[in-house]
Amino acid sequence: MKKLMNSAGTILTESLDGFVAAHGDIVSLGAEHKFVRRKNLKPGKVALLSGGGAGHEPLHAGLVGFGMLDAACPGQVFTSPTPDQMLEATQAVDTGAGTLFIVKNYEGDVMNFEMALDMCGSTVETVITDDDVAVENSLYTTGRRGVAGTLVVEKIVGAAAEKGADLQKLKALGDRVNRATRSMGVALTSCTVPAAGKPTFEISGTEMEMGVGIHGEPGRRRVALKSANEIAEEMVAAIAGDLKAKGDCLLFVNGFGGTPAMELYVMYNAALAQLAKHGLKPCRSLVGSYVTSLDMAGCSITVSKFDDEMATMWDAPVHTAALRWGM
């Protein structure tokens, strides 16, 4: 394992210290590294709180700031945060209008946020994101994973919260954006969890994992590596077949941490051509590594069917470490 670190035991806290030092104009750190919060809260605004295992940076701490989250609780690498973190973060950022939890659909995350909600005196609603089409949905299983589409939910709900929407409206909007959003991921390499010291799975130079999540968990199947056009064809077909919608959409090509921007734009170009076949037309776009899986090479494609309100909220000003526009 080669990583820029001092020790696996301190990688998370040192990274958070660096993050907060670099973005001290936007964020500050909670006690014992339990959460990253927006430096200047807006009284009367519903607080937006998310969190999850570390290793997905810049998600979620990089999305704390004006127009998005009020706090983010980082867990250990790929491990959900604990209830005390969400509890203390909620107490720190709730200004009286209630708090919305945005939780990616993993059992650990859902259970820890639920336990925090049970202990919390304040008014809390929860939006659970589950945009990954690689997982078959079923009443009898965990259901789909929350992956890169979570960023879309956080952006749109964050903008609406900034404009003064109440907790119930934000909960409904978050659920609506999640229902309009689908993602699919492909991995060319595994990733290495710092404390584990070796890649989570072995994969040869001529293979890829189709349908991966964001934790180095293997995908649904391993196949021979194909061209970008062929990969995009399969991913977009899976997304469009499930979304069953036509018209304006957001196209978000997200890198997993080990793939250069050059390749992400190749995938954007390839996905664009495929979307046209399915009657989907990107009216907004985002390309970059935002919801990562440590050092994994590969990407996910996220498509959100946009209506006018969602497009307006997407365009609304945002000022976070990772996303900044309109101000």
Partner: peptide, 12 residues
């Protein structure tokens, strides 16, 4: 375990 482990194993 609930407050320090995280993941699914902490709550369970």
């Amino acid at each position: 375990l609930v407050m320090k482990v995280g993941g699914a194993s902490g709550p369970l």
